[in-house]
Protein backbone atom coordinates (compact mmCIF):
# COMPACT_ATOMS: atom_id res chain seq x y z
CA UNK A 1 0.00 0.00 0.00
CA UNK A 2 1.22 3.50 -0.82
CA UNK A 3 2.08 5.86 1.98
CA UNK A 4 -0.52 8.37 0.79
CA UNK A 5 -3.21 5.70 1.18
CA UNK A 6 -2.03 4.93 4.69
CA UNK A 7 -2.19 8.60 5.56
CA UNK A 8 -5.78 8.71 4.36
CA UNK A 9 -6.67 5.64 6.43
CA UNK A 10 -5.00 7.22 9.46
CA UNK A 11 -7.03 10.38 8.99
CA UNK A 12 -10.21 8.34 8.79
CA UNK A 13 -9.28 6.36 11.91
CA UNK A 14 -8.60 9.53 13.88
CA UNK A 15 -11.91 10.96 12.74
CA UNK A 16 -13.71 7.78 13.83
CA UNK A 17 -11.90 7.85 17.18
CA UNK A 18 -12.99 11.45 17.70
CA UNK A 19 -16.61 10.61 16.93
CA UNK A 20 -16.60 7.53 19.15
CA UNK A 21 -15.24 9.48 22.09
CA UNK A 22 -17.57 12.43 21.55
CA UNK A 23 -20.53 10.11 21.23
CA UNK A 24 -19.68 8.16 24.38
CA UNK A 25 -18.62 11.26 26.29
CA UNK A 26 -15.39 9.63 27.39
CA UNK A 27 -12.24 7.98 26.10
CA UNK A 28 -8.51 8.39 25.74
CA UNK A 29 -8.11 10.55 22.69
CA UNK A 30 -4.50 11.69 23.11
CA UNK A 31 -2.97 8.21 23.32
CA UNK A 32 -5.25 6.88 20.59
CA UNK A 33 -4.03 9.58 18.24
CA UNK A 34 -0.36 9.04 19.11
CA UNK A 35 -0.48 5.32 18.27
CA UNK A 36 -2.75 5.52 15.20
CA UNK A 37 0.05 5.66 12.62
CA UNK A 38 1.85 2.71 14.26
CA UNK A 39 -1.34 0.63 14.00
CA UNK A 40 -1.89 1.60 10.37
CA UNK A 41 1.72 0.68 9.49
CA UNK A 42 1.33 -2.72 11.17
CA UNK A 43 -2.08 -3.61 9.73
CA UNK A 44 -1.90 -1.95 6.32
CA UNK A 45 1.83 -1.97 5.66
CA UNK A 46 2.04 -5.72 5.15
CA UNK A 47 3.76 -6.28 8.49
CA UNK A 48 1.19 -8.22 10.54
CA UNK A 49 -0.06 -11.60 9.34
CA UNK A 50 -3.80 -11.96 9.92
CA UNK A 51 -6.99 -13.28 8.36
CA UNK A 52 -10.03 -11.06 8.75
CA UNK A 53 -12.35 -13.96 7.92
CA UNK A 54 -10.69 -16.19 10.50
CA UNK A 55 -9.47 -14.02 13.40
CA UNK A 56 -8.32 -17.10 15.34
CA UNK A 57 -6.28 -18.50 12.41
CA UNK A 58 -3.44 -20.45 14.05
CA UNK A 59 -0.79 -18.93 11.76
CA UNK A 60 -1.67 -15.33 12.62
CA UNK A 61 0.84 -13.06 14.28
CA UNK A 62 -0.11 -12.31 17.86
CA UNK A 63 -0.52 -8.59 18.39
CA UNK A 64 -0.81 -7.57 22.04
CA UNK A 65 -2.25 -4.12 22.57
CA UNK A 66 -0.74 -3.45 25.98
CA UNK A 67 -1.79 0.20 26.22
CA UNK A 68 -5.40 -0.93 26.40
CA UNK A 69 -6.80 2.50 27.24
CA UNK A 70 -6.12 3.64 23.66
CA UNK A 71 -8.34 0.89 22.31
CA UNK A 72 -10.55 3.28 20.34
CA UNK A 73 -7.83 3.50 17.67
CA UNK A 74 -7.54 -0.29 17.50
CA UNK A 75 -11.34 -0.67 17.27
CA UNK A 76 -11.42 1.69 14.29
CA UNK A 77 -8.55 -0.09 12.54
CA UNK A 78 -10.11 -3.52 13.07
CA UNK A 79 -13.57 -2.37 11.99
CA UNK A 80 -12.24 -0.75 8.80
CA UNK A 81 -10.47 -4.01 7.97
CA UNK A 82 -13.70 -5.95 8.46
CA UNK A 83 -13.09 -7.81 11.72
CA UNK A 84 -16.52 -6.46 12.76
CA UNK A 85 -18.93 -3.99 11.15
CA UNK A 86 -17.90 -0.33 11.10
CA UNK A 87 -21.40 0.46 12.34
CA UNK A 88 -20.42 -1.19 15.63
CA UNK A 89 -18.13 1.78 16.33
CA UNK A 90 -21.22 3.92 16.91
CA UNK A 91 -22.09 1.73 19.89
CA UNK A 92 -18.75 2.34 21.63
CA UNK A 93 -19.20 2.74 25.38
CA UNK A 94 -22.99 2.40 25.19
CA UNK A 95 -25.23 -0.15 26.89
CA UNK A 96 -24.79 -3.66 25.47
CA UNK A 97 -21.94 -2.76 23.11
CA UNK A 98 -19.06 -5.19 22.58
CA UNK A 99 -16.75 -2.17 22.55
CA UNK A 100 -15.76 -0.90 25.98
CA UNK A 101 -13.18 1.56 27.15
CA UNK A 102 -10.37 -0.96 27.29
CA UNK A 103 -9.30 -3.78 24.98
CA UNK A 104 -11.31 -6.98 25.44
CA UNK A 105 -10.30 -10.26 23.81
CA UNK A 106 -13.91 -11.11 23.08
CA UNK A 107 -13.82 -8.47 20.33
CA UNK A 108 -12.86 -10.11 17.01
CA UNK A 109 -9.22 -9.35 16.23
CA UNK A 110 -8.23 -8.46 19.79
CA UNK A 111 -5.82 -11.02 21.16
CA UNK A 112 -5.66 -10.14 24.85
CA UNK A 113 -7.72 -8.18 27.36
CA UNK A 114 -5.75 -5.22 28.65
CA UNK A 115 -6.45 -2.01 30.47
CA UNK A 116 -4.23 -2.41 33.48
CA UNK A 117 -0.79 -1.27 32.39
CA UNK A 118 2.40 -3.29 32.49
CA UNK A 119 0.88 -6.67 31.61
CA UNK A 120 1.24 -6.88 27.84
CA UNK A 121 4.96 -7.47 27.49
CA UNK A 122 4.97 -10.47 29.84
CA UNK A 123 1.99 -12.00 28.04
CA UNK A 124 3.69 -11.38 24.70
CA UNK A 125 6.87 -12.99 26.00
CA UNK A 126 4.87 -16.06 27.03
CA UNK A 127 3.29 -16.28 23.57
CA UNK A 128 6.69 -15.88 21.91
CA UNK A 129 8.14 -18.59 24.14
CA UNK A 130 5.24 -20.93 23.31
CA UNK A 131 5.93 -20.36 19.59
CA UNK A 132 9.61 -21.13 20.06
CA UNK A 133 8.91 -24.28 22.07
CA UNK A 134 6.55 -25.53 19.36
CA UNK A 135 8.70 -24.25 16.47
CA UNK A 136 5.83 -22.14 15.12
CA UNK A 137 6.69 -19.23 12.89
CA UNK A 138 4.19 -16.63 14.02
CA UNK A 139 5.57 -13.39 15.43
CA UNK A 140 4.41 -11.82 18.65
CA UNK A 141 4.24 -8.04 18.70
CA UNK A 142 3.30 -5.85 21.63
CA UNK A 143 2.45 -2.16 21.56
CA UNK A 144 3.24 -0.45 24.86
CA UNK A 145 2.70 3.06 26.07
CA UNK A 146 5.76 4.76 27.47
CA UNK A 147 3.95 5.53 30.71
CA UNK A 148 3.46 1.84 31.44
CA UNK A 149 7.23 1.40 31.35
CA UNK A 150 7.18 2.79 34.88
CA UNK A 151 5.73 -0.57 35.92
CA UNK A 152 8.35 -2.96 37.29
CA UNK A 153 6.62 -5.85 35.54
CA UNK A 154 7.72 -4.42 32.18
CA UNK A 155 11.35 -4.76 33.18
CA UNK A 156 10.79 -8.23 34.61
CA UNK A 157 9.45 -9.19 31.20
CA UNK A 158 12.26 -7.36 29.40
CA UNK A 159 14.86 -9.38 31.29
CA UNK A 160 12.97 -12.63 30.71
CA UNK A 161 12.57 -12.07 26.96
CA UNK A 162 16.26 -11.30 26.50
CA UNK A 163 17.36 -14.26 28.63
CA UNK A 164 15.26 -16.65 26.55
CA UNK A 165 16.53 -15.09 23.30
CA UNK A 166 13.03 -14.38 22.05
CA UNK A 167 13.97 -13.05 18.64
CA UNK A 168 10.37 -13.74 17.59
CA UNK A 169 9.19 -10.97 19.92
CA UNK A 170 8.86 -7.36 18.82
CA UNK A 171 7.82 -4.61 21.19
CA UNK A 172 6.92 -1.11 20.14
CA UNK A 173 6.73 1.76 22.57
CA UNK A 174 4.44 4.66 21.71
CA UNK A 175 6.91 7.20 23.08
CA UNK A 176 4.69 10.25 23.30
CA UNK A 177 6.48 11.47 26.39
CA UNK A 178 3.33 12.10 28.40
CA UNK A 179 1.32 10.45 31.12
CA UNK A 180 -2.00 11.63 32.51
CA UNK A 181 -0.81 14.48 34.68
CA UNK A 182 2.73 15.10 33.56
CA UNK A 183 5.50 14.77 31.00
CA UNK A 184 7.53 11.59 31.54
CA UNK A 185 10.84 13.41 31.84
CA UNK A 186 9.43 15.67 34.54
CA UNK A 187 7.72 12.86 36.46
CA UNK A 188 10.37 10.09 36.52
CA UNK A 189 13.04 10.36 33.82
CA UNK A 190 13.10 7.55 31.25
CA UNK A 191 16.01 8.89 29.19
CA UNK A 192 18.27 7.46 28.07
CA UNK A 193 15.34 5.17 27.27
CA UNK A 194 16.93 3.33 24.34
CA UNK A 195 20.04 2.55 26.36
CA UNK A 196 17.92 1.03 29.11
CA UNK A 197 16.48 -1.49 26.65
CA UNK A 198 19.91 -2.18 25.16
CA UNK A 199 21.26 -2.79 28.66
CA UNK A 200 18.47 -5.33 29.16
CA UNK A 201 19.67 -7.24 26.09
CA UNK A 202 17.32 -6.00 23.38
CA UNK A 203 18.02 -4.78 19.87
CA UNK A 204 16.70 -1.25 19.73
CA UNK A 205 15.54 0.98 16.91
CA UNK A 206 14.35 4.53 17.41
CA UNK A 207 12.03 5.89 14.73
CA UNK A 208 9.62 8.70 13.97
CA UNK A 209 6.29 7.15 14.97
CA UNK A 210 4.36 9.36 12.58
CA UNK A 211 6.45 8.62 9.47
CA UNK A 212 5.10 5.62 7.60
CA UNK A 213 8.35 5.40 5.68
CA UNK A 214 10.36 5.22 8.91
CA UNK A 215 7.95 2.79 10.58
CA UNK A 216 7.87 0.43 7.59
CA UNK A 217 11.63 0.47 7.35
CA UNK A 218 11.88 -0.38 11.05
CA UNK A 219 9.38 -3.24 10.66
CA UNK A 220 10.64 -4.47 7.29
CA UNK A 221 12.91 -7.30 8.46
CA UNK A 222 11.10 -8.31 11.68
CA UNK A 223 10.40 -11.79 10.29
CA UNK A 224 13.98 -12.39 9.17
CA UNK A 225 16.25 -10.76 11.70
CA UNK A 226 19.63 -12.34 12.14
CA UNK A 227 19.61 -11.88 15.90
CA UNK A 228 18.95 -13.83 19.04
CA UNK A 229 17.52 -10.86 20.83
CA UNK A 230 14.02 -9.44 21.07
CA UNK A 231 13.49 -6.21 19.18
CA UNK A 232 12.36 -2.92 20.69
CA UNK A 233 11.11 -0.19 18.38
CA UNK A 234 10.83 3.12 20.15
CA UNK A 235 8.38 5.13 18.09
CA UNK A 236 8.68 8.80 18.89
CA UNK A 237 5.20 10.21 18.74
CA UNK A 238 3.11 13.20 19.70
CA UNK A 239 0.15 12.77 21.99
CA UNK A 240 -3.00 14.08 20.37
CA UNK A 241 -1.35 13.91 16.91
CA UNK A 242 -3.60 15.13 14.13
CA UNK A 243 -5.50 17.87 15.95
CA UNK A 244 -3.40 20.99 16.38
CA UNK A 245 -4.68 22.14 19.76
CA UNK A 246 -4.35 18.66 21.25
CA UNK A 247 -0.79 17.94 20.17
CA UNK A 248 1.53 17.67 23.16
CA UNK A 249 -1.08 19.05 25.55
CA UNK A 250 -1.64 17.13 28.80
CA UNK A 251 -5.29 18.18 28.94
CA UNK A 252 -6.17 15.90 26.05
CA UNK A 253 -5.18 12.64 27.70
CA UNK A 254 -8.82 11.82 28.30
CA UNK A 255 -10.88 14.95 27.93
CA UNK A 256 -13.59 15.22 25.30
CA UNK A 257 -13.70 18.22 22.95
CA UNK A 258 -16.90 20.24 22.85
CA UNK A 259 -18.22 23.33 21.07
CA UNK A 260 -15.62 25.26 19.07
CA UNK A 261 -12.91 22.77 19.97
CA UNK A 262 -14.98 19.96 18.53
CA UNK A 263 -15.68 21.92 15.37
CA UNK A 264 -11.97 22.61 14.96
CA UNK A 265 -11.03 18.98 15.56
CA UNK A 266 -13.60 17.76 13.06
CA UNK A 267 -12.51 20.25 10.48
CA UNK A 268 -8.80 19.47 10.87
CA UNK A 269 -9.33 15.72 10.64
CA UNK A 270 -11.60 16.18 7.64
CA UNK A 271 -9.13 18.38 5.78
CA UNK A 272 -5.73 16.97 6.74
CA UNK A 273 -4.04 14.10 4.93
Amino acid sequence: MEVCEMKEIARRVRYQVLEMIVSAGKGHIGGSFSCTDILIALYHGGILRFDVKNPKWSGRDRFIFSKGHSTEALYAVLANLGFFPVSELCTYGKGGSILGGHADNKVPGIEVSTGSLGHGLGIAAGLALAAKLDKKDYLTLALLGDGECYEGSIWEAAMFAAHHRLENLVAIVDRNGQITLDYTEECNRFEPFDDKWRAFGWDVRVVDGHSFEALLEAFMDVRARNAQRPLMIIAKTVKGKGVSFMEGELYWHHNVPKGDKLDTARSELALNG
Binding site: E111, G122, G126, L129, A131, E156, F160
Partner: peptide
Protein backbone atom coordinates in the same frame (compact mmCIF):
# COMPACT_ATOMS: atom_id res chain seq x y z
CA UNK B 1 13.91 -30.12 31.45
CA UNK B 2 12.32 -28.41 28.39
CA UNK B 3 9.07 -28.14 30.37
CA UNK B 4 10.65 -26.61 33.47
CA UNK B 5 11.38 -22.91 33.99
CA UNK B 6 12.94 -21.28 36.99
CA UNK B 7 11.61 -17.80 36.28
CA UNK B 8 13.52 -16.10 39.07
CA UNK B 9 11.96 -14.01 41.78
CA UNK B 10 9.52 -12.14 39.56
CA UNK B 11 5.99 -13.26 40.30
CA UNK B 12 4.22 -10.62 38.24
CA UNK B 13 6.13 -11.72 35.17
CA UNK B 14 5.54 -15.40 35.94
CA UNK B 15 1.78 -14.92 35.82
CA UNK B 16 1.80 -12.78 32.67
CA UNK B 17 4.17 -15.16 30.89
CA UNK B 18 1.99 -18.08 32.01
CA UNK B 19 -1.00 -16.31 30.49
CA UNK B 20 0.90 -15.94 27.22
CA UNK B 21 1.96 -19.57 27.30
CA UNK B 22 -1.64 -20.62 27.92
CA UNK B 23 -2.80 -18.50 24.99
CA UNK B 24 -0.12 -20.28 22.97
CA UNK B 25 -1.55 -23.70 23.85
CA UNK B 26 0.52 -24.59 26.93
Amino acid sequence: APQYFNMGIAEQNIVSVAAGLALGGK
